[in-house]
Amino acid sequence: MKRLAEGLKNGLMTFLGLVFLSPIVLMVFTSMKPESEVLNPESAIPKHWTLGNFQHVLGWSEEAPFVRWLLNSVFVSTSTTLLVLTFSSMAAYAITRLKVPGGGVFLGIIVGAMMIPGQLFLVPVYLLLSKLHWLDTPAALIVPATAGGFGVFMLSQFMRSVPESLEEAAILDGCTTLGVFANVVLPLCGPAVATLGIFTFIGSWNDFLGPLVFMDSVRDYTLPVGIALYQASYYTQYGLTLATAVLGTVPLIIVFLLFQRYIVESMSSTGLKD
């Protein structure tokens, strides 16, 4: 009886998981259907498998430079992640360990600012970027993203729990502050830094409003805006737009599968320290 109840629970939750997965599977299947089959959903699995949609999307380079968008997205997301991790971890270290005067107050201000909706910044940041002549360059998407307070907040919470004795030992061994930070503190914060990195990467990869407003040149679009442009002009052809959707999602799913353990485990363990 107990085993039955347990099996029921497991089965039910597995079913829920599959329900959540099914739209994505359907998207992949449909992108491999010829156009004539797409609007006729008689069977979820294509009768005639084809890669024609993908060939069309990737071969359309002059009008919709898909490979270029991919390159832009990877570049922007990786650079953003790198900068956010560097800035946030250094700031968190300064606040929690180096005891910068006023650090606690600053942390409070950062957390307070996190409450302010991003839209409030949209117009001013736009004007600022235009003054800096950064509009329509990747810097417009990368640099402002480093101002977010979430990373500093999260890493500060984590660094507090790292035992100070380890650091002291390293200092006695003659390590510089930078050396202690890079060789002792960062490795100890590995999971938290990895989580922050992954969140930052996903957030940057999927940012829509930023590139929509800050970028003009089609060649400099990132994938979300590029895909939306493609959809606007090919809205009559679901097969093609779904192929762009699949291509835009695959890189992220690869990242997810590579770091799956980190993402979910450390998300559970670090997000909620307080």
């Binding site: 939750m13 597995t14 829920l16 998981g17 599959l18 959540f20 997965l21 739209p23 994505i24 998207m27 996903i202 990869w205 999927n206 829509f208 994938l223 979300p224 805006v225 895909i227 939306a228 959809q231 737009t241 779904l242 959707a245 835009g248 999602t249 992220l252 799913i253 997810f256 799956q260 993402i263 979910v264």
Partner: peptide, 19 residues
């Protein structure tokens, strides 16, 4: 199952809206 539930969050808003 936890991973499956998290998967849709990886899609960006444009892809989600198309789908």
């Amino acid at each position: 199952v936890r991973a499956l539930l998290f998967l849709p969050g990886l899609l960006n808003v444009a892809v989600t809206a198309i789908l």
